[in-house]
Design a protein around this nucleic acid. Structure first.
Length: 586
RNA sequence: GGGCUCGUGGCUUAGCCAGGAUAUAGCGCUGGCCUUCUAAGCCAGACGCCUCGGGUUCGAAUCCCGACGGGCCCGCCA
């Protein structure tokens, strides 16, 4: 319960009391954060106009004169039909700073809920490296998971590995059968026609891409290869353990590379769940049996099974959702159903971070879950695709920027910035900070925009280290750390009479808003609010920094240092929620 | 053809779900600020028919209908 919540309660009570005095029967009214900078809370009086048969402005004026400042309410006024309230600035400063001092990094955290939330994210096919289009998934997912933890939930994260199907089988064929010469030639060819030199990347996920491309080309050109791959696919479906193990092994190798990339942007997942497991343990088959028994089930002439979802709001020329092939084998979506049922046995809330191309599939999945009698539904979080200025990203056409390359570029850029201004710093330290800053810039740049907005990747934006950027927040953290380092030991002082500058009040006000941001970013899944808040906080700090001096502030020194420390603590926590490092110098 | 989604200064973006005061911020642009706690910073300024047309309302960037423009989807693929 923050000081602003108390304030809102007092305002509500005061307004209700005053309305009663005016003889109003209807006592419901909104109390909102004002859009006017000089006002803290506002009550719009427009909706009361009819009941009271008075002009909104007249009502606002009458209410304003009926309410006298007391408690946390320091001023009451009216303007343009709004009844405006200001919080006692001293109480705001004192209340906020005391709470931060006592709770530390727990400040802003919501009480434990005991709710188990599972966030599935990333889950890219293990057939190639992660490109920047897909990078939105792990970054949004990981950030959301961190925010949900802050909201008091027991959070687990999970990657669903698609090790079933043609794509991984083709890749596996390529790894097993492509000769070193063929792979080398493919790399040459690719470098010449597309201009990407992949042999320099000594990472398994990048190395295997050439094998994949060789396999695809040979499959198209050579019927014998096509036949071998089809045979492998059949073997896989039939449960041929040798084939399954080989495919799994290839996926593992690829996954090693993907895990390394993810770890480089501070993303680690609690669990990797293999799609093939739901065939092996028979749970996909159980889904098939249950769906077959439902009243929506049907069979095509060839023997493929489907459920008709036309009663579930699924639109289109074909509302049939097929869940077995005519030979009785399961499909991706069938296994995905088994997967979701499994997840529900392990968690209370499921969140799926998905590309917007999965929208229909997700809806079909939910309808099928309903048919299966599930009372809970996964909550999908969709993000729109990232494209390049030259168009849609495509690994095959070579119109692609890999996340690994973006990370390298960003870290290199950060290193250049550091070495430009910190000649005193040892080399290792500069490298270490360059990594923190470079990775932070990428994560920030990706989460700052609403997931549903399309995104055109531009190097100049991705490598922006100024203004609304990750390094801007990290810079403020480093600045605060530097001041506290220079200050040495000091006694905490939250006396509001020593923090009266406009910039100090502004900073305290922003700090007081953290809890509501945590709630919105986590529980309401509006992850992009977290970077926006971080920017507001950093900006308020920079204004404070520019307008008052701290270290030689005489009797105000300790109070200002306390404010610096509080800002640092909250900013570090924001950076933590964003999966960004909080450098102590840069 | 049908469904979903996005459209806010030159560019990027918040606000939209729960309609209210002068529409948020950044990049870029113009002009200032480092003998002083890190200038990856601060201050000041210019730049907006919130895609268009209707409707609901005392009031619409926000809700409804329609158009236009971009994206995504409509497999016995994954």
């Amino acid at each position: 319960m923050s000081i602003m919540d108390d304030f809102e309660k007092e305002v509500s009570a005061a307004v209700a009391e005053a309305l009663k005095g005016m003889g109003a029967r209807e006592t419901k009214f909104p109390v909102e954060r004002s859009s006017v900078e000089t006002v803290d809370l506002a009550v719009p009086c427009f909706s009361m106009a009819k009941a009271l048969r008075k002009a909104p402005q007249a009502i606002a004026e009458e209410l304003a004169s009926a309410i006298s400042p007391s408690g946390l309410i320091s001023a009451v006024s009216s303007a343009n039909g709004f009844l405006n309230f200001n919080i006692d600035p001293a109480a705001l400063v004192k209340g906020t700073l005391d709470e931060i001092c006592s709770r530390g990094s727990e400040y802003g955290s919501l009480p434990k809920t005991g709710i188990r939330v599972n966030v599935e994210h990333t889950s890219t096919n293990p057939t190639g490296p992660i490109h920047v289009g897909r990078a939105r998934n792990p970054i949004i997912g990981d950030t959301l998971a961190r925010c949900l933890k802050k909201c008091g939930h027991e959070v687990s994260t999970e990657y669903y590995v698609n090790d079933v199907g043609k794509q991984v089988v083709v890749l596996t064929w390529g790894v097993e059968n492509a000769t070193p010469e063929e792979v080398a030639a493919e790399i040459e060819e690719h470098a010449r026609t597309i201009g990407q030199n992949e042999k320099e990347r000594d990472k398994t996920d990048h190395r295997l891409v050439a094998n994949y491309r060789v396999a695809n080309k040979k499959m198209e050109a050579d019927p014998a290869v096509q036949e071998q791959i089809t045979a492998m696919l059949r073997g896989f479906e039939a449960g041929d353990q040798k084939v399954i193990d080989t495919v799994r092994h290839t996926a593992e190798i690829m996954l090693d590379g993907l895990r390394e990339t993810l770890s480089n942007i501070n993303v680690t997942l609690d669990r990797y769940t293999w799609e093939s497991g739901y065939i092996a343990d028979g749970s996909a088959k159980r889904v098939v049996e249950k769906l077959k028994a439902s009243k929506y089930a049907g069979t095509t002439d060839d023997g493929a099974c489907y459920v008709d979802l036309k009663d579930f709001g699924v639109q289109g020329k074909n509302t049939k959702f097929t869940f077995t092939r005519s030979d009785g084998t399961t499909l991706y979506t069938t296994r995905d159903l088994a997967y979701h049922l499994d997840k529900f046995s392990r968690a209370d809330r499921l969140i799926d971070v998905l590309g917007e191309d999965q929208k229909l599939g997700s809806k079909q999945l939910c309808s099928a879950l309903e048919i299966l009698g599930s009372e809970r539904m996964p909550e999908p979080l969709f993000y729109a695709f990232v494209s390049l200025p030259e168009g849609k990203m495509s690994t095959r056409k070579g119109v692609v920027v890999y996340l690994d390359d973006l990370i390298d570029e960003s870290v290199a850029r950060a290193y250049a910035e550091i070495s430009k201004r910190r000649s005193d710093m040892p080399e290792d330290r500069m490298r270490e900070i360059a990594r923190i800053v470079g990775v932070g810039a990428i994560r920030y740049n990706i989460v700052r925009v609403q997931p549903e907005k399309q995104f055109v990747f531009k190097w100049e934006d991705a490598l922006n280290f100024d203004g609304n950027s990750g390094p801007y927040l990290q810079y403020v953290h480093a600045r605060a750390c530097s001041m506290l380092r220079k200050a040495g030991e000091f006694e905490r002082d939250t006396d509001p009479s020593k923090l009266t500058d406009e910039s100090e009040l502004k900073l305290a006000k922003v700090l007081s808003e953290y809890e509501s941001v945590v709630r919105a970013a986590g529980d309401e899944k509006k992850v992009h609010l977290m970077p926006a808040y971080g920017h507001d906080l950093a900006s308020a700090f920079n204004q404070f920094y520019a307008s008052v001096s701290v270290l030689d502030a005489g009797s105000r020194r300790n109070a200002r240092l306390t404010l610096v420390e509080c800002a640092k603590v909250v900013l570090a926590d924001v950076l933590g929620c964003l999966g960004m490092g909080a450098p102590e110098e840069m």
